[in-house]
Design a protein around this nucleic acid. Structure first.
Lengths: 248, 248
DNA sequence: TTACTCCGCAATTTCGAAAATCTTAGTCGT
DNA sequence: ACGACTAAGATTTTCGAAATTGCGGAGTAA
């Protein structure tokens, strides 16, 4: 039983101060990324002095970012007692999965019904990009770097976005994005290091291809059914992994 | 063709500084309330000096609130050029209605399947409270005060929340709440003053009662069907009103 | 021993000024 | 007349210090 790598132990250096945009935006992106990648663990108090040292930013932009992340439910705010990374639970994870199934399946249905050539191109293009990145990481004889994993993850996210991108609903896209990131918190630390994960990944990739094929061929029920099952299976895998290794 | 009252003309005084909680939270509630009630119009620049004068707060808590409202899509943030109240459009309104239909109907289904005595009591209780407030405002021989309207609105919101409260999904509840508030922006300035609005309100109330009755009697398909139609009709009414009186 | 109060310190929140950025109006050149 | 440039003023964003709040430990009384 392999132990998942302790991603929180050695967080990578924070990105440099940007030359463009506001520091509040930069703070948002940095903190969000660290939460999604597990460098900031669930339940962790987000002390302003610590964040200031890590990111080189004053309290004001940090607090602005934390307020945004609060509204996105990645962070809990305890009035006058500061902010904490939102906690994990299986209950919450299943809620995110099931709500995501509701929204994403509807988004996929609408896209299949309304999407034109551009949508098809986007689906197939993102599927191809995901396949390429996947093959590259599978061919590695060493552990993938965080950058390589991030690239694969970006491609994966783009694939999911593409599937529902012709839904005509900004709200569905927006909520889907948020729910994707919530489920991501549970997947990222464990998924790549799980036992049998190479087999699992191949199986997921095959499934992703099938969903894309069904979608572009306008086989609505097949696509949506497989998509729902795939999302649900994500939850099952996460649950199994978390049982094997309780959350810190 | 009656013109809707110009709610933005004379905004009521802002609430006093709280003795509890943070000023950032207070700012959030004040600004949010003013947006939802139309005192801050769509597209309006949210100038910090103006907000400071209106609410008696420094820039920092104001900015914190604006960052939160940005994540909730009530406010748009233009980096280095400040914040604005998010704009209206019929497209956006329909998106909110349709997404809300998706989420709320699923929430109602789940509640009908899973809810116990407590849920039934909540549904019937909130229906009763809404009826009482409604009858009071209908019996007025003068125009309802903003407080009276706000009470009715709070009861209405509580009714909708109750219907889906046993869904077991915090995300659905959270998104439903946000979508409720988005649609509220379109309803509030116009709905109470629309032509034939007394008739329309009676019809809505009868419908709300029927939905509650179906739900509590566990007639899932009837409840959900009527609920969906009711939500959709809200969109139709809003659209009609906005055609009669284009958004300022 | 338990419960309560007080105090010091740490942390959070807010303040207002300074720094940075944007907007507008005026001037100059083509 | 139009476009480019500049300067001044307005506004936004950030900074760091002050004000406020929470927490933990020590002391006291029952």
């Amino acid at each position: 039983m392999a132990k998942p790598k302790q991603q929180g132990d050695m967080p990578p250096p924070a990105p440099k101060r940007p030359t463009e945009g506001t520091l509040g935006q930069h703070a948002y992106q940095c903190i969000r990324s660290d939460i999604l990648k597990g460098h900031l663990r669930p339940g962790t108090p987000l002390r302003l002095q610590g964040l200031k040292e890590r990111y080189g930013l004053s309290f004001t932009p940090l607090r602005e970012a934390l307020n945004r992340l609060q509204s996105e439910q990645l962070v809990d705010n305890f009035a006058s007692r500061g902010f904490r990374v939102a906690t994990f639970s299986m209950e919450e994870m299943w809620d995110a999965i099931e709500t995501r199934m509701l929204i994403d399946c509807e988004g996929l249905r609408r896209s299949i019904r309304r999407g034109g050539d551009d949508w098809e191109a986007e689906v197939l293009g993102s599927m191809l990009a995901l396949t390429r990145a996947f093959e590259r990481t599978m061919a590695l004889t060493r552990e993938a770097t965080e950058e390589e994993r991030a690239e694969l993850e970006d491609r994966h996210k783009a694939y999911h976005h593409a599937l529902i991108s012709a839904s005509g609903s900004n709200y569905m896209l927006h909520y889907s994005d948020q729910l994707y990131q919530q489920t991501h918190r549970y997947r990222w630390p464990f998924f790549s290091e799980a036992p049998g994960s190479a087999f699992l990944k191949q199986s997921y990739m095959a499934e992703h291809r099938q969903i894309a094929d069904h979608a572009v061929a306008r086989r609505e029920e097949e696509a949506v059914d497989l998509f729902a099952r795939s999302l649900h299976r994500t939850g099952e895998v996460i649950e199994k992994l978390h049982m094997a290794q309780p959350v810190a």
